[in-house]
Design a protein around this nucleic acid. Structure first.
Lengths: 143, 143
DNA sequence: ATGTTCATATTCACCGATAAGCACTTAGTT
DNA sequence: AACTAAGTGCTTATCGGTGAATATGAACAT
C-alpha cells in the first residue's frame, strides 16, 4: 500500500529520489504518466499492465477512446530506479506538471502522485480542500 | 508496448530519427500509413498484419467499409531504419500530415503516431482534452 | 555524547542519442 | 551529356541521460 507524503528536489538533470518507503512497494521499475489536476501518476508494473490491457480493448474508431488512450500512453514513461535510488522524469512530463526543483511525492493507495511542491500546497489549502466537505461527499458514495 | 512522447525534426530530405526507445519495440522494418485526426500511424510488422486481418473482415458490400479500407491500405509504406536510426517518410504521407520540420512522435500501445508538432500541441490543449472526461473514463475502466 | 548506518543531496565525468551539414548515387528531364 | 531532384550514407558537434564519488544529515545503538 502506497502511503505518505514526502518532499524532495530534482537534480540538475531532472532526476528525483524515490523515498525508500515507496520504493519497497513500487518496485525497481515502474511507470509514470500524466495525471489529473496537474500532477503525475506513478504505477507499479502490476497496476500498469492491468491498465494497459484495458486500454488495448478500446476501439480505434471511437474518437473519445482515441483521446483517452493517447493521453495516457503518450504521457507514459517507464522508469528505473538507479543504484542511488533515483529515477529520471522525462522532460515532457516535467513540463506538463510544471516541475522546477521542489517536488512533493505522495502515496495514494494504488499509485503515487508527483507534484510541484507549491501546487501541492495550494491544492491542499482551504479553498480547495476541506476534510469536512470531502467527508460529506463520501457519504454519497456509500462509505 | 509503445509509449512516450518525443519531439524531433525532419532533415532536409524528409527523414526522421526514430527515438531509440520506440525502435526497440517497432523493429528495423515497420509500416506507416495515413492515420486518423491528421497524423500518421506506424505499426510493427506484427501489429500491421493484425490490423490487415481486421480490415479484411470488413464487408465489401458496405461503401463506408470500402472507404475505410482504401484509406489505410492505399497510404501504407514500408519503412526501414538506417544505420543512423533514421527513416524516410514518403512525400505523399508528409503532405497528408502537413509536416514541415518539427514533428512529435508518440507511442500509443499497439502503434506509433507521427504528428506535425503544432497540430499535436493544439490537439492536447485544454479546449480539446477535458480532465473531467478523462476522469470519467478512468472510473469506467476501474482505475 | 559518540560513533555507525542509512537515506538523501550535490557534483562531476563520460557515453550514446540526436542534430546538422555535406558528399555521393541514382533516376528522370531537357 | 548536363542538370535537377530525391534518396542514401558519412562525419562532426552537442546535449541529455547515466553512473560514480563524495557530502550532508537524520536515526539509532552503545
Amino acid at each position: 500500500m502506497l502511503i505518505g507524503e514526502y518532499e524532495h528536489s530534482l537534480d540538475a538533470k531532472g532526476r528525483l529520489i524515490m523515498p525508500a518507503k515507496l520504493r519497497e512497494c513500487l518496485g525497481e521499475k515502474f511507470i509514470i504518466t500524466k495525471g489529473l489536476d496537474g500532477c503525475l501518476f506513478g504505477f507499479s508494473q502490476n497496476e500498469w499492465t492491468n491498465f494497459e490491457e484495458k486500454l488495448k480493448t478500446l476501439p480505434l474508431t471511437n474518437k473519445n477512446a482515441r483521446d483517452f488512450v493517447r493521453f495516457f500512453l503518450s504521457g507514459a514513461t517507464e522508469c528505473e530506479i538507479d543504484k542511488q535510488g533515483r529515477f529520471l522524469i522525462a522532460s515532457n512530463l516535467r513540463d506538463y506538471a510544471e516541475m522546477e526543483k521542489e517536488v512533493a511525492i505522495i502515496g495514494v493507495g494504488t499509485r503515487i502522485e508527483i507534484w510541484n511542491k507549491e501546487k501541492w500546497k495550494k491544492y491542499n489549502s482551504d479553498e480547495n480542500i476541506s476534510a469536512d466537505e470531502i467527508a460529506e461527499n463520501m457519504t454519497m458514495l456509500g462509505i
